[in-house]
Design a protein around this nucleic acid. Structure first.
Lengths: 234, 234
DNA sequence: CAAAAATATATCGTATACAAATATTGACGT
DNA sequence: ACGTCAATATTTGTATACGATATATTTTTG
């Protein structure tokens, strides 16, 4: 009666694809053929399909019948919905954490921030990893509430936010983000609900603003080619 | 390029199972063998598995490797998590609806309440259907916000709440519930955020209390037997 | 007679094969 | 030269077959 004798190969595929999408290694609207992925991982389409289904439910991939799976390409409206829901959920997270969070929990958050610092100031500016870490900070917070349901939803919206940022934001200026994380933890430490919530709201607002202000950077093939033909004509 | 030429057979299975679970036709912890279900619906295990996977993600069924799928049997802790998250989400729903809801939206809510009344006062007291309708009222509200993400999460927690009520509440006293629904709509009509939220919170609190106050009616075999051995020893 | 081992059965996990649907490409006629 | 239509080829949707694993039953042994 061991816990996990078989590490579930579909989970491996799922997590790999998830990271690849979040870190923008797989661009939005990119096709995800089952055969190709299966060959790559050495598994059959059955396994790949499970992973893709999960990703679809979480909003990271979209599938149309007989068209297969594609990396999701959220519209601005969807993006707004995700951000709005995320704010709602994270307010609850902060509220709960201020109410009761263990010292270990705060330490875990500090440790995570330290890791974010390390990656940011590290030898090479690892943008994708930085985005992922920034998101995981919020997931860690949600898990510290002890509410599994809440944590799952936060994890989902954070993933989707990462994808949205990957689309709509040119570069992830994580400098301010890390600092805001620090300030949120400080407010929680001070048992200051209002401050923590306000900082969190501002933080998410800043993230959202960064997304909303930029134009869609991955337009249709036609548009791209138009630009290039213009260049060659010039 | 028609919308849905094939109504997706897995969706049929999914919805049937979902309703059966929510209406307590399928009891918690009941086994759900893939073959049996497949034979019943005239589809292969592949289809059934898709439906079961979806239900698992939504928390309505649980599966352990090589043990197959069972109807979920949430613990009290899970139940609390679900209720807490639901409150958080529905507060947001109410807030958004008060901000801006169309007349059509309010009409839809009225119509739904009327339907609840009809079923409640109908010839036969249709308990299961009453539970389902009560839940769907909240889903309709969430959908009226226009936020798809929010609506999906609300739909999920409402489903799970229905299941929880099915377990922990002996009978669904829907009389008060319908009236509370009416009062919530009234508060929204009056643009009274505070009142609407307060009623909603009280409503969910009442639902939760009804669940939390009852002891687990189907505990472990050991626990039951312990109680009985104690009794015989006394 | 009780307990433990061994077998049998049922159910699940995965791969693969076949059918259906669609996008693409080439041919053809205007 | 361009638009339309048909054939091909790729990809998904579904079913089924096979192997693995857990549970139930039976048999054996102390």
């Amino acid at each position: 009666m061991s816990g996990n004798p078989v590490p579930k190969r579909s989970d491996t595929v799922y997590q790999s694809l998830r990271r690849a999408i979040i870190e923008q290694a797989l661009h939005p609207a990119m096709r995800l053929p089952e055969d190709t992925i299966g060959e790559q991982f050495g598994v059959s389409r059955t396994i790949v399909r499970q992973a893709l289904n999960r990703l679809q439910m979480e909003g990271l991939v979209e599938t149309r019948p007989h068209h297969g799976a594609h990396v999701a390409k959220p519209t601005l409206e969807e993006a707004r919905d995700v951000f709005e829901t995320r704010r709602c959920l994270e307010r609850e997270v902060v509220r709960k954490l201020v109410e009761r969070v263990s010292v270990n929990g705060l330490d875990a958050l500090d440790a995570h921030i330290a890791q974010e610092d390390r990656v940011r100031d590290g030898p090479r500016r690892d943008g994708p990893r930085s985005i992922r870490l920034a998101g995981e900070f919020h997931v860690v917070m949600a898990e510290l509430t002890g509410n599994k349901v809440l944590a799952r939803y936060v994890s989902e919206v954070v993933s989707r936010c990462s994808l949205i940022l990957a689309i709509y934001s040119q570069r992830h200026s994580s400098d301010c983000a890390v600092d805001e994380h620090r300030r949120i933890v400080q407010a929680i430490r001070d048992n200051d609900v209002a401050a923590a919530m306000q900082i969190m709201d501002a933080h998410l607002g800043a993230v959202e603003a960064r997304a909303a202000l930029v134009e869609d950077p991955s337009p249709d093939l036609k548009t791209v080619l138009n630009r290039y033909t213009e260049e060659s004509a010039r």
